[in-house]
């Protein structure tokens, strides 16, 4: 542990203000999201606690019953924006995280198989990835979401909505992961430590999993981090377009969409604060991802 704290990576992190700041910000946002049920001033889904008397209040206005202040204002239903944003962060992070996890599993598996097996399998898998890469991520997500909507009855679709969104975003992210993993796998496959395992007859799948995989996951961390930012944005876009999560579980994107309807009536805070939260979240993730990439590529410094 002491060795680890003294290592160059940790030192590099501690001496990079951007890395420290973005990490701090990210933890703050994640902390807020995870702890939302305990720290949020109100539960925005508990209709008993939401009062229409307080609808569309600007920031810093006192509640009608006078016992507290709406720091970020309220929406048209009288929900506390701060609470809605904390709960929205939860949904955004959950969907983004699940989508990235899904993409990592698919992308790493396909990349590893493609790079290790090579030949015809590689040719087919990589052409599929090529085709996939020609579609913008949001368009892919729209297509997948649309086809699932068409294929399933509405009731089933609604109960599966979270899975559909996670799947459709995840599927748009796997090719970049698969390509990177394939590239590093092809490099590692030719290295002598892999040959040494093959000489004594270690089965191929075990060589790929125990020898190659641990040596190709470095870049995956970077792409996954940057992918999390993209996934959260994609989810926000889908929700904004109205094909994302249902209004009963509003993500940041949903909040922006509904807030946007009132933008011209002067209630700017309904869209601006969720938008700011989304921006800070994605910015923190991307800065951290960039730093991670630089830190893992010694030649860049």
């Amino acid at each position: 542990m002491r060795d680890w704290l003294d290592s160059d990576a940790v030192h590099g992190f501690r001496t990079s203000p951007i890395a420290v700041l973005s990490c701090l910000l990210l933890w703050l946002l994640i902390g807020g999201a995870v702890l939302a049920p305990w720290i949020a001033p109100q539960n925005p889904f508990d209709l008993g606690r939401v009062s229409l008397m307080d609808s569309s209040q600007p920031p810093m206005s006192p509640a009608a019953d006078g016992d507290r202040t709406y720091f970020l204002g309220t929406d048209q239903q009288g929900r506390d924006m701060l609470s809605a944003i904390l709960y929205g962060l939860r949904v955004s992070l959950l969907v983004g995280g699940l989508a990235v996890a899904f993409a990592v599993v698919v992308g790493v598996t396909i990349g590893l198989v493609s790079g290790y097996v090579g030949g015809f399998v590689d040719l087919v898998l990589m052409r599929i990835a090529d085709v996939q890469l020609t579609f913008p991520a949001v368009l892919t997500a729209l297509l997948v979401d649309g086809s699932i909507r068409a294929a399933l009855p509405r009731s089933v679709h609604d109960s599966l909505q979270l899975h559909v969104v996670v799947f459709s975003i995840g599927i748009s992210l796997w090719p970049s992961l698969a390509r990177t993993v394939r590239g590093s796998t092809m490099v590692e496959r030719g290295k002598d430590y892999v040959l040494a395992a093959r000489v004594i007859g270690v089965p191929s799948w075990r060589v790929a999993l125990t020898h190659v995989l641990p040596n190709v996951v470095g870049p995956v961390m970077v792409i996954a981090t940057l992918g999390l930012g993209m996934a959260i944005l994609a989810e926000a876009t889908l929700s904004f377009l109205g094909v994302g999560l249902p209004a009963s579980r509003p993500s940041l994107g949903t909040l922006i969409k509904y807030g946007g309807d009132y933008l011209y009536s002067g209630s700017w805070w309904m869209a601006a604060f969720p938008g700011l939260a989304l921006m800070l979240l994605v910015l923190a993730i991307n800065l951290l991802g960039d730093w991670l990439r630089d830190a893992l590529t010694p030649g860049l410094r």
């Binding site: 430590y193 004594i200 270690v202």
Partner: peptide, 30 residues
């Protein structure tokens, strides 16, 4: 198991993510 090989590159021939004990123990376990 009666044949094995030693390579040229002292860096590439050892898996950087494995401890030496696991590296040497791999054939024994296999």
């Amino acid at each position: 198991r009666q044949m094995s090989m030693i390579f040229q590159d002292p860096i590439a021939s050892l898996n950087p993510r494995w401890r030496v004990r696991s590296i040497i123990g791999e054939p024994i376990r296999l």
